[in-house]
């Protein structure tokens, strides 16, 4: 019974992680960049939203500023990567470390309370079903907006940048600019999820973003497994990612309920992601049966 009672809450948190995973999807899948900024930019979103609301701001402008702050984080990573030629993964790590200090400065301390009883928040864990509806609406709007964006000339150029950089440049696409925009967009989405998380959990904490990238990757991978061979457009794919976030969090809650040592959770998450990331490589290396046609062609 306890587990069932926990489900609406787990689903709500899963939706928030799903939104974050959409941000990860933009960099990891669309742009083909591994961006580790998210561990920091998620907290930036939480901190900015919490501090502004604590200072008396309305929730909507507070969330908007949080998203813009997240985009700023992505911009920094993007400029490290393109302007200064630092590998994407290192650029993200550097920004993440910068953000640790920045986030502490934003909050002035390690955490900031945002109790739903005192503040006029959009969602709160005190009203889980209400939160579920609001979060689902956020997901619908976000997926729709991004779907439209990917269908524009600009969005298509961004996808081409991730798919084949050499080709993109040959077709006159400023690949550096599109990478920076993609990173900013991604971290804006991540910060949005942070702002929602701060409201839902009633606090922002400097440690809350730790391992966010792994959860995001897990959601992306689970999402891919779920949609499998379904006809794929970006609505299906992004919906898959969000469902992946929910599945991740429901499983997470279940193993906690079953009494697993919570200290081990991050390790298990990372190992699960590692295994799934390894699947394409393992398939290619150990399960590859050359087709006859290809062999004769190469001979």
């Amino acid at each position: 019974m306890g587990l069932l009672n926990a489900m609406p809450g787990a689903a709500a948190q899963g939706l928030i992680w799903g939104i974050m995973a959409i941000g990860v999807y933009i960099t990891f899948k669309v742009l083909d960049l591994a961006d580790l900024t998210v561990d920091g930019s998620m907290v930036t979103g939480m901190a900015v939203c919490a501090m502004l609301m604590a200072a008396g701001w309305n929730v909507w402008p507070a969330m908007l500023i949080a998203v813009l702050a997240g985009m700023g984080c992505g911009l920094v990573t993007g400029l490290f990567h393109t302007l200064m030629g630092i590998p994407a993964i290192l650029s993200g790590i550097l920004t993440q470390l910068i953000l640790w200090s920045v986030n502490l400065k934003i909050m002035g301390k390690a955490n900031q309370a945002l109790p739903a009883r005192t503040f006029d928040v959009l969602i709160s864990q005190l009203e889980k079903y209400h939160a579920l509806v609001i979060l689902a609406l956020f997901c619908v709007v976000l997926v729709t907006l991004l779907y439209c964006f990917f269908g524009t000339k600009f969005g298509a150029a961004l996808r081409a940048t991730g798919c084949n950089e050499k080709m993109a440049r040959a077709q006159g696409i400023n690949t550096d600019m599109h990478k920076v925009v993609g990173l900013a967009l991604s971290n804006g989405v991540v910060a949005l999820s942070g702002a929602l998380m701060a409201q839902y959990s009633g606090k922002a904490d400097i440690n809350d973003g730790r391992g966010a990238i792994v959860i995001g990757l897990a959601a992306v991978i689970i999402g891919e497994a779920i949609i499998g061979k379904m006809p794929q457009n970006y609505i299906v794919r992004m919906t898959g990612v969000i469902v992946g976030g929910i599945v991740y969090y429901v499983v997470y809650q279940t193993v906690i309920f079953l009494g697993l040592d919570t200290d081990l959770l991050k390790m298990l998450s990372a190992l699960v992601v590692a295994v799934f990331l390894a699947v394409p490589h393992l398939k290619k290396t150990y399960f590859n049966k050359p087709r006859k046609k290809e062999v004769s062609k190469n001979a």
């Binding site: 524009t152 000339k153 600009f154 298509a156 996808r159 798919c163 006159g172 696409i173």
Partner: peptide
């Protein structure tokens, strides 16, 4: 020369916009 994960028509639309501004209209 082409983006493998994109459709034929998407690839061609990338080419037809070569040298043009790529804004927020449908590709």
């Amino acid at each position: 020369g082409t983006a493998a994960d994109m459709w034929i028509e998407e690839n061609m639309s990338l080419a037809i916009n070569r040298g043009k501004k790529r804004g927020f209209t449908w590709a």
